[in-house]
Amino acid sequence: MSIQLQAITQQFHGQTVLDNLNLTIEPKKIYGLLGRNGAGKSTLLNIISNRLFPTSGTATLDGETLHDNDQTLGQLYLMSEVNMYNDHSRLKKLIDSTALFYGDFDRAYATQLAAKFGLNLTQRFGKLSTGYRTIFKLIIALCVPADYIFLDEPVLGLDANHRELFYQELIDSYTNRPRTFVISTHLIEEIANLIEHVFILDQHQIIVNGSVSDILDRAYMITGPDADVTAYTSGLNIIGQDHLGGITANYVYGALEDNRPIPDTVTVERLDLQKLFVNLTNAKEAAAHVN
């Protein structure tokens, strides 16, 4: 029971976007898919949902192919940044067709959500603002009877109140019917505690793949006078640095040296997910520039 990506490579006009990527997405978990702009998050999601064909590699659900297969494709739903709906269609009609194709659509909840977000379902899709397009697509995503829901930029154009409402409804809906959500967003702080597992996509690869608590258990910020911090962190996996006067903060990803005494002048703190992400993806970029 899972979605499996095996050796996925994607190239556009000779440029590599994804390079031999492997991934497992398990049932009933909330995932975060993080990556910088242009890292290939949307490409990856489009490959899973069979909207694009990878240059090589396979995507399966419970061992069955996701390529051109109604049975497997019907078990997932990708809410994408690209608008897949016709501008002239009325929202009601789009809900009708979604219900027709997926079956079992939760209409009562959709009506309830539309009221909560203040969305009038008699409008045409093309007439909606960016924020309300997002809201409409979110409503569909939460009411569709699929087991794997992929949300690409789910809060694009939403104000703080609507974002708050969305996160609450997401948890409510997840509690009532546990299923997998994969959330791809740049607002890392807002989902950091919400997600159970995180994928970080960088340099055409998944560079971090693990439970959020395990990963944050291995991410530290070590602050103090330059010399002391440098001495204490020597040989560790330093992913980034900040300087302020004579004070240095070294960001470390990986185990610390347990038998190395911590100097009084040095403090060891944990990193949050956003800070870890920024440092991991910055470091790679700097390295790439050096080469």
Binding site: D70, G74, L76, N86, Y102
Partner: peptide, 16 residues
């Protein structure tokens, strides 16, 4: 193309 977009969004294969 327009219908293709709608159908692939709704988990309908090209074959179908």
């Amino acid at each position: 193309y327009d219908n293709f977009k709608l159908f692939i969004q709704n988990g309908i294969s090209r074959k179908t």
